[in-house]
Write a protein that binds this DNA or RNA. Sequence first.
DNA 1: GGCATCATGTGACTTCCTGTTACAAAGCCG
DNA 2: CGGCTTTGTAACAGGAAGTCACATGATGCC
Lengths: 206, 206
Amino acid sequence: MAERLTVGVAARLSRYLQVLTQAKKMGKDRISSQEISDYTNINATQIRRDLSGFGKFGKRGVGYNIDSLLGEIRKILRTQGQHNIALIGAGRLGQAIASSPIFAEHGINIAAVFDTDPDKVGRSIGNLAVTPYAELSDTVRDRNIIVGVIAVPAEGAQAAADDLISAGIKIVFNYSEALLDVPADVAVHASNPAVELLYALYFHLT
Amino acid sequence: MAERLTVGVAARLSRYLQVLTQAKKMGKDRISSQEISDYTNINATQIRRDLSGFGKFGKRGVGYNIDSLLGEIRKILRTQGQHNIALIGAGRLGQAIASSPIFAEHGINIAAVFDTDPDKVGRSIGNLAVTPYAELSDTVRDRNIIVGVIAVPAEGAQAAADDLISAGIKIVFNYSEALLDVPADVAVHASNPAVELLYALYFHLT
DNA sequence: GGCATCATGTGACTTCCTGTTACAAAGCCG
DNA sequence: CGGCTTTGTAACAGGAAGTCACATGATGCC
């Protein structure tokens, strides 16, 4: 059980999580490996093998119980509890992120939203008040925040990253277009819709 | 040259594109495979092998010229021209997407923004006016739009997808949390920050 | 109760991708 | 000219993922 998952397995388990939470919202209570395959385009045999490596979660002839499978996968990924994250930037993107239920569904709690703009400070987004940027460091330490989400324009992204890192954060999600220079022990995850789009286009145009 | 790229190669080439565009903005004009490796965590030998499979783009002892490499990769991915996309939803997320320079940088043009809310129709976002949702089908056909980006709440996502697909669109980017049911010849790309975050957490907590 | 059906769990095999190591060729600079 | 850098490639090893096949167990129909 102490073995480390490979990146491939962990990535696929995350996809299953996504499908399961949605399927649950749609009122289903069990699901087959074939159905998961339809939504993820991951081979059904592969899915069963991924899961069976950790225990026998399914019922033959029936499928998987969604609730219990959700719990099992969370257990495998060790992400069962609540996790606090900080959001930097209360602009349109920041607001969109803060008001989305998507994080709460997975036990991720946006503990604070920061912005340098005095006009935005104090205003509330979702049910959070925007905190002055100067308090970032203290808040990160006090509230045990381990992930920082950067939703500021490209010009400010590196500075935000530097501040997050010096406050002790080791995981940064970068929603700006900037490339970030960070120490080797900090993980940066970036999402670039335009590049993903080009990638999707390639496979469609052939 | 007519061979199809594997998904791995295409994905990596897209990452290179992202790094190159940013490096260019930072004023650099050449870059080594090692530098690309630092930003992408992709093996430098792998990068050189990916590129050399299509021609000799670099100069030994020097590196790659950023401008010409950008052009070469775009040529390989066949995404050199302008591509028109449609954005559904003019809420906070839609506004954030529409006002980001990220698409334009890669030759992707947001040709129209649609919303069902009469209050939003006619207002301008970036330098586009919001178009009534009813005109979606005609606009998609007239302007040769091949990609639809869904930035509406989960409840409306499936309906938006259905309408896009019946207008002829084959590539859908889904920024809602909903799972979409689509015909087999339509590609859906979804991005779920929360799930990516859980994935990132796993590797950090070990 | 018996039997057909369905979906999981799992083994064996193959294929292909990625990382590694190594090194020659080529450009640059003092 | 000679040292340094970086590309372009070859050879090899390891491992991940797809495919096929099949036994096992659960369910439901007749």
